[in-house]
Amino acid sequence: MPDSTATGVSRAEQAKATLASVPATPGVPKPDPILVADHVLRTFGGLTAVNVEHVEIQRGAITALIGPNGAGKTTFFNLITGFDDVNEGAWTFNGRPVAGKAPFRLARLGMVRTFQLTKALSRMTVIDNMRLGAKDQTGEHIFAAIFPFLWKSQEKQIDQRAMRLLERFNLHEKVGDFAGSLSGGQRKLLEMARALMSDPELVMLDEPMAGVNPALKQSLLGHIKSIREEGTTVLFVEHDMDMVHDISDWVIVMAQGQIIAEGPPDTVMKNAAVIDAYLGARHDSNLTESGEALTEDGA
């Protein structure tokens, strides 16, 4: 069980309680949204990859974004984080309109993402990967960089934080190794740990479990829960229904670019439209019995 907060109620329970009163309808408003998107449209030629009318992401909760392959989940991530440009649409982060902002600015505002295809910087060491994640570094300015005394003490603090995170993610023995020498699962862990270096308000994880072996998956689940316990909002894309069921407070379902359902995990997985969408895409997980069925779906 996750640690309890000072009030004696874990964030998991808080999130569940807050979302309990929210009706399970697509585009439903949330009590305290960190991210609100409106009319987000992205087409590739004739293909409508994303067409989201309205969606809100609840602060402090773990929200899962699911849907068959090609549903537009990654594209939606890319749009929201500024890595791709919308045809139309607007969205706010913490109440602030952020459409059209450069991706590095959105990251600085506290919206940090990982990638479906892991982007560990292979020819850099694990610790250097981690250090890159830290914000507001004096030594990143070209003139200050020449004078190590200006940034050495900050670097020490960054290293301490990095070591704490690496220990938590069980990577502390790899500190000096090149990231390229890690296994696929370890790279996923490293990417997640690196994203947490900046202490983001919202982390968006694109398929954090893909290619991760079952043993590591369990610890990854624990890590995602612990991120929530620290007050960080999590939005993640995942295929594995058991995993989604296990850790998410809220589930949003996309199909063909649109949000077709949302609600608490139990409710969503009984939704006929959702089952249709998955069966239509020949998805092999058994949605109706998601409590018991264990899928080893890596796609």
């Binding site: 590095f104 940090v112 250090r131 990417e191 900046s198």
Partner: peptide, 22 residues
Amino acid sequence: SPWGRVVKGIREDEDAVVSLGK
């Protein structure tokens, strides 16, 4: 320096570095 770290990161994968706010 940290500057060099960012620059090497860009050489490896620009999007990764951008996603970290650089």
